[in-house]
Design a protein around this nucleic acid. Structure first.
Lengths: 139, 139
DNA sequence: GTACCTGCAAAAGATTTGCATCTTT
DNA sequence: AAAGATGCAAATCTTTTGCAGGTAC
C-alpha cells in the first residue's frame, strides 16, 4: 500500500488528509503485527519527530470509528490495532502477549455456513473471530 | 455454588482460604456476566465494606494464575473476569461493551474436529474461543 | 511459628480531555 | 472562511507495587 493509496483511503472515509494521519496509517501497515500505541508512536517518530501522543490516540479512535482500522482484543490492558480488515483470526499467546494473524478461508466458510443455519436467540451476528490460544513453537 | 464449595475450590488450588477470597469468588459467580474489577468491588462492599482495591487486583491475578478464573478479552481497556471455565464462546457488542456467554457443544466439537486435522505451522493449540460480534436484540 | 495475605497509600501506565493554534478543503 | 485536526499539558482512570501488620495453616 503506497502513499497515494493511503491518502485515498483516508479521504474516502470522509477524513481530512493530514501528514499525521498518513504516517499513522502507514505505521499500521508496516508494523504488521498489531502494534500498541507506543509502538506506533516510536515508529512514526523516526520520520515525524513532533507528533503528539494525544493526536495518535485521537486519530486511531477516529479511524476505528470510520472502519479504516480495528482494535484487536487481548487480555492485557494496552490496546492494539490492526489495519487488516478482511475476516481473519488470531493466534495468541497470553503469557507473552504475542499475536499473529491467522488466515484460513476454509475455516471462514465453515463458520459462516454454521451460523447461517444456527439461529442465536436475540442476537444478530455481524462478525466472527476465532482466538486460538496456545504456544508459538518458533523462537 | 455454595460457600463450602467455594472454600474447597480455593483450598484445592493451593491457596489459603480467606474471607476476602471467598467473597471475590462468590461475587464472580453471582455477577454472572463478566464483571469488571470495579463491579466486583462494588458487589463485595455491601457485605464486606473494608476490602482493599489492591487486594482485589492481587487476588484476581492469583486466581487467574491458578486457573480458578479467567480473564475475558475485550477491545476495551478495563479487564473483565469470568468464573466459568469450561469451553464456551462469547457474544459481544463492541459499542456497548456487553458480553454474554455462548454455549454450543456442537460448535465446540466442530472446531475441535477441524483443528485436530488441520495443522498450524509453528503453533500448538491449547484453546479456542470464538467471539461473535454483533447486536443484542433485546432491551 | 512461618508462610502467605491484606490494607493502605503512593506510583506507574495508559488513555482522555480542553483549549488555543494551525491546516485542509 | 469554515470545519476539522493538531499539540500540549493537565486530568482521569485502571492497575501495580512496597511494606508493615495480620491471619491461616
Amino acid at each position: 500500500m503506497n502513499r497515494t493509496e493511503l491518502q485515498k483511503e483516508i479521504s474516502e472515509a470522509g477524513l481530512k488528509v493530514t501528514p499525521q494521519r498518513i504516517a499513522i496509517l502507514e505505521a499500521l501497515v508496516e508494523l504488521a503485527n498489531h502494534p500498541t500505541v507506543d509502538e506506533i508512536i516510536a515508529h512514526i517518530k523516526e520520520h515525524h519527530p513532533s507528533i503528539a501522543t494525544g493526536t495518535v490516540y485521537k486519530t486511531l479512535e477516529t479511524m476505528k470509528d470510520k472502519g479504516l482500522i480495528m482494535r484487536v482484543i487481548t487480555d492485557k490492558q494496552v490496546m492494539r490495532y490492526d489495519a487488516v480488515l478482511h475476516r481473519h483470526h488470531h493466534l495468541y499467546n497470553s503469557e507473552t502477549g504475542r499475536i499473529e494473524d491467522y488466515h484460513d478461508e476454509e475455516l471462514n466458510q465453515m463458520l459462516e455456513e454454521y451460523f447461517k443455519k444456527k439461529n442465536i436467540e436475540n442476537f444478530k451476528v455481524k462478525d466472527l473471530k476465532l482466538y486460538i490460544t496456545g504456544e508459538f513453537l518458533d523462537n
